[in-house]
Design a binder for these strands. Sequence first.
DNA 1: CTCGTGTGCTTCGAGTTCGAAGCAAGCCTA
DNA 2: TAGGCTTGCTTCGAACTCGAAGCACACGAG
Lengths: 168, 168
Amino acid sequence: MTEPTRLPPAQLAAYFALTEVSSLLQHAVEQQLKTDGGLTTPQFQILARLNAAGGRLRMTDLADGLVYSRSGLTYQAAQLEKRGLVTRTPGADDERSVEVTLTPPGRDLLAHVMVGHVEVVDGLMMSSLTEADIAVLTEVLTRVRDHMRAAPPRSAAPRAPKKSGGIS
Amino acid sequence: MTEPTRLPPAQLAAYFALTEVSSLLQHAVEQQLKTDGGLTTPQFQILARLNAAGGRLRMTDLADGLVYSRSGLTYQAAQLEKRGLVTRTPGADDERSVEVTLTPPGRDLLAHVMVGHVEVVDGLMMSSLTEADIAVLTEVLTRVRDHMRAAPPRSAAPRAPKKSGGIS
DNA sequence: CTCGTGTGCTTCGAGTTCGAAGCAAGCCTA
DNA sequence: TAGGCTTGCTTCGAACTCGAAGCACACGAG
């Protein structure tokens, strides 16, 4: 039980719990998405985000909401296009941009997959929570999310004098 | 026939918030681990788990606490061994098992990395929360975690249902 | 008009991940 | 002791991921 550093115990507990829950949940969801619709998590996120935005978004706007890299987005968009779930067309205003559009089959598949998706989340996560729990969880996590989105990407490390030229 | 399914809005909000927070946090942590110690998240998890267990664990016991696949664990353990952070030796009792042991350099690196790790988690996640928030978050998430660990996914394990928890 | 810079997306190579198949050691029954 | 089943881990091939480099269009200055 020798710990290398002293740690704020309450905070670490919260952090580990968050990490573990989200890992387990993500794993379960991944299985469901693959089984019910042959989708990976990133693909599902793309479809869901497109649907939420009315069915059409530019690559850049799509990337803004998601967490992973531009190149990964290109790859997954290509996969989705192969299956006919989305189309990619040159942007109307800006010739170098690409607009991704949800097709009817894409919308159908999303609707179908969403059912099982909600079932899994419900059964695995929500079934052990009260409405009050859910409300407070949402409130707290939303606050954290906003703070994270606002925070600078990185750097400003007190110990590391590493200069990366700045974000200018 | 295909309508966007109606969804429990409060639950979805909680779920999305959880997903987004954990993604952002994971991303930030990944950067820190790489910068401070040249470690990936799975590698860090292995070292941390080893340290928590006193420095030595069998591969299987290591896998039980983590989320990813056996083959992935083998791969990462090999990476760690290459860097001299752990050793792998045949098990004493059982010749086919492998015991992974944290080396002194491994312990040192973990201690070093943990400092920055806590800093990141603290600054990014905890700074926007009160102590009460943290307490309630921990309580709720711990409950969810226990429930998830107890519940089998949607199908039984393909090969090895553990001795204790009979699925049949 | 032409050049230089910025922006949007894709391509590329290297590394990581997973599930299935494979290998070897242990266990159980006869 | 032999035979078959189980368990512990590794290897294999294919898919996915990332960051860096590259390509093409847009915009502004001269």
